[in-house]
Amino acid sequence: MEDKKHPLTSEESLQIIAKMIKTAQGNFRDGSFYFIFWGWIAAVASLAQFYLTIFTDFNAPYLVWLIGIPGWIITMLYGYRQSKRETVKTYSDTLIMWTWIGFTFSILVVIFAGRHINYQITPLIMLFVGLCTFISGLIIRFKPLIIGGSSFWIFTPITFYLPMEYSSLIMAIAILFGYLIPAYILKKQN
């Protein structure tokens, strides 16, 4: 390889940046699994919670969210296997990963503070999901994900104005538009 004594030209710099973005997009598109997997977990749990709340007398419908525990185990195992196959880990990959780890800790705070916020957990989760999805879309420059993240912000105020029993139904609809549709588009482009 030839050593260059002169600084990069603007064209060379743009080529390097474009290549980095393409690599990050490729890595992230391979990660459409996470959006599809968690999209379905959250949609099923939201619909199950709505059903149990409205149509049964079960007094703890939020327990359906315990499905997230095996979900996290599967996610960690899948992520571990994927990291062994990845040849290049970009800064964008790391940024997206830490964004979603930050999301997880934020959600845990919201869940454990539920009593202090009158159990208005769903709208806050939707806000955080929207933010992380939006940021992920911006990082990889994938418009459907950016729009998907934004759609959570459209659905969130609705959950504040409807009776709390309907918030899980609104969340399921938001997940369809904000997570699942962009994830399947992402997967199709892979």
Rank of each mutant, 00 (worst) to 15 (best):
Y80D: 03
R115L: 02
I121E: 04
P144A: 07
D93N: 13
E165F: 07
G39A: 12
I96M: 03
V109A: 06
Y62V: 10
A60W: 10
I125V: 15
F128Y: 15
I69A: 14
K188S: 13
Y51M: 03
F112N: 09
W153T: 08
P182S: 02
K19M: 08
T56V: 06
Y51L: 07
N59I: 02
L47Y: 02
L169F: 15
I173H: 01
F155M: 05
Y91S: 11
W65T: 04
L108K: 03
I41Q: 05
G137H: 07
D30L: 12
A183W: 03
T156N: 06
L52G: 07
L138N: 15
E2M: 12
R81M: 14
C132A: 15
I140D: 01
K187T: 04
G178M: 00
P123T: 05
I21N: 08
N27D: 07
L138Q: 15
I41P: 02
L14D: 14
F177A: 02
V129G: 00
L52Y: 10
S106Q: 03
F112H: 06
F33L: 06
Y91C: 00
F128K: 11
M76A: 14
W40H: 15
Y78T: 13
T133K: 05
T56M: 01
A42R: 03
T75N: 14
A43F: 12
I67S: 10
I69W: 08
L66D: 04
A43D: 06
I21A: 09
I69N: 07
G102P: 04
P144V: 09
I107Y: 10
A45K: 01
W100S: 01
I135G: 08
P163Q: 12
S167V: 09
W38D: 01
L180E: 05
